[in-house]
Every structure is written in C-alpha cells, then in structure tokens.
Design a protein around this nucleic acid. Sequence first.
DNA 1: CTCTGATCATGT
DNA 2: ACATGATCAGAG
Length: 447
Amino acid sequence: MKFRTEQELLEYTSNIKGKTFKEIDSENLLANASLNRQKGLLGHVVETGFYKYPINSDSKADFEELDIELKVTGYVKNKNGSLRAKERLVLSKINYNEIINETFESSHVLGKCKKMLIIWYEYDSTKEAKDFLITDYQLYDMTNDFKIFNNDFEIIKGKVLDGRAHELSEGDTSYLGACTKARTSSDRTTQPFSDILPKPRAYSLKNAYMTGILRELIEKPTLLEIKSQQEFNTVIEYVKDKLEAYFGKTQVEILEEITGREYDEIIPKNISKMISDELIGKDEDLPKKDDLFAKTSFIIKNLPIKEDGKPRERMSFKTISLSDFETDWEDSYWKNYFEETTLIVICYAEKNKSRNGFRVLSDVKQITFDENDLESFEKTYNQIKLAIEKKDVNLLPTSANGFKNQLLEIAPKGVKGDDAYVNFFKRDKTKVAFMISKKLLVNKLNI
DNA sequence: CTCTGATCATGT
DNA sequence: ACATGATCAGAG
C-alpha cells in the first residue's frame, strides 16, 4: 500500500484505533510466537497485517515515499489511572566511528527517525499479546524538541570524542538516550579514541520522554492551556539557575531568607529538603514549571559533604516492595529506574564539622549510573530475590551482610519500634529502602 | 572515626 | 497512618 500524502496515511491509520493485534494479523505472525523473544513482532504485525507491506526488513523508512518511520509501542495504566510508556523507543544504532563527524542535523538518527508514526497499544500483563488493544496513534516530529535533542546529541558525541564511549549512560542526556543494544551482555564494539571496547548502543527516546509525549497526546486540551517554558536544556542547568543566589550561605540562612522566619536552636531535620522544595519545586509541581520536567526522569537530592570532600552519608531511595522483585533484573522496575534516572545532587559543605543547618550550599552535581554500576546493582537485586524465595532475612544485602564491593545496599526505614528486617516478608510494602554506598558516591562525585 | 539500624519532619 | 528524604546516634 502506498500513501501519497501524510493526510492519506493518517486517514487510513485512523481505522487501527480500537483493534487488537489478532484482528489485523492477516499473516498469522502471532500464531506460535513468543513476544519476549521477538521484540519487534507487534510492529511486524502492523506492517504486514494493517499496511500490507511484504515481510522484509530493509533499513529504509517504512513509509519511504513520505520519509516516515513506523513505530509500534506500548503503554501501561498506573494504579491511579494515569498512563506511562512501557518502554523506551529504540531508534537507530550509534556508530561511534561516525558520530564524531556528524552534527545532529546531519546524523543518521535524524535522517531515519525525524518523522515517526507512533502506534500506541495498551500493554496488560494479564493478557496475551494478541489481545492487546491499539488505542491511539500520532505523527511525531523529532524536530519539535530540536534544541534539547541537539544538546543531547552533542553530549553523546562529546563522550565519544573524549574516548569515553564505554562510560555512556542513559542518564547523561535529557530526552535522547544512548541505550545498550546487544545480543548478549558480553557483546562489544570499537570506539575511535580509546582501545577500551564499549557496549554497542542505540539512540532511544527515553522512557520518561515517551510518557511525556503520550500524555501530551491524550491530555492535549489541558496541556495546551498551561504550555510551560522551555528555557533550559538540562535539569541541572535549571537547578543551578534557581540556586545561584544562595551559594555560600548556610542552610539556616537560606531557609530564613525564603520563609521570613527565624530558626535559632531547633533545626528541622529535613531542612535541605525544605529548601529544595521551595527553591526548585516539589517533584509533582515541576512539569508545570518547565517542559523539560514533563519528559525526563530525575530526582533532586541533598547531600552533606565533609571537609575532606567526601559525603557524610549514604544516599537513600524509596522503600522497596516485595512485588518489585517478581521479574528478572532485565525487566525490573529498579533496573529501569537506575538506568534512566539522573540524580541532581545539591551539596552542602561542612566547616569545622558543622551540624545540620549550618552547612554551606557549595555545589550541584549530577550522578548517573553506568554499566559497571548496573552490573553490581543486579547482584544486589538478585540477592534480594533469593532472600524472598528462601524467606531468609539473613540473605538480605544490607551493608553488614552484603557482598564484597557492594554499591547498592538496603537499610531499614521504619517508624519507631518497627523492626524492618524481622517484618520484611510480612507485607508487600516493606520498611526497607535502597541506599547507594558512600564509596560509589565518592566515585561519582569525582572526589 | 565509620558503620548501620533507627528515627525525624513533613506531606498526603 | 504511612511514605519519603534525610539525618541521627549507639556500638565498636
């Protein structure tokens, strides 16, 4: 089937809404296939069954005459009814030897994926793939977010130019990720400015970005009313801008300045958090402040730094649920979380061992996790899985009880009298949280 | 000192 | 009443 105009293509595509995959699978591709092994299968079903293209995968754009690439991707419904993309959208492969001679505008990825027809289906773990419902579609143009994509592209290219392709991480960038793309985890390729063999990677639209454009599509009317700013290229730029006037001041001075109240002896334990909530915004309010926040996943963290430059504490994350550990690491919530999330770390420096409240705003740093970190995190994850299987608290990877060179550990986080470890298996929501070790923080903060 | 389980202040 | 982010505080 050929389409002469975008209009024609979209008009035809409108008929796909409300269909399940089995309804359009005229080539019977779904008959005896497993979705886990063949990730592009649902895309093939749409190509052959709905658009009647022959089964062959050449590298030309799917709708060649219109320069439009077809993408079929899933979303899931959260418990509260909101939608989120199930996965990142993988684009073309990164060629480390060529990227150094490209600009974003001349790049392979923009050449192939500038315009994409994205078909959305609702993923439902209780259903078989053939029964997934296609509910929406959109003609998407990458140049809509050109400024940030361009900046992301330069970040990726910069690492390759530095001979650090093996240190690439999805968290380095805002929207355009460099995700791993390998047949096996030991697969390696070459890079131009280092002998270290990096993992093969592909450009991707990050999971949080996909969630952002999905919500724009579905919630269009409301979003148009509050069209937010697009002033900054990265979250860290935004945060530094908001904190600029307060560097060199103590926590108490800053809090007094922004609240107009006085704090003499009683310092709120969460004073740093009160400050970042006020000056930067609470996580849930940020999407309204800058479009960047609607399409990225990041967390604002506060960290006391000792006089030797090292962090005083580990860094904590959300409490874990037993159900987080039902899948393999590769498909897990936590792998995705650590892979994609950028930590924005607001540093407060101690002077003469100053206690909380009297540390000085000194720096803002960014932490992302690379392949080595994730490999270590995987061990922690698997050990928790094992502990759950065996119902054995002593197997839990606490810092006292973990393995050698552990980077991610668990620690109690309860209310008074709650014995987090003893009660670990009693309910889905545990009283235990992930923490990253001080050792890893030292490494990440380049101390 | 460091380590690690426990606790606090806040927001919902 | 509980989750979160972060610090506290006793043991060694």
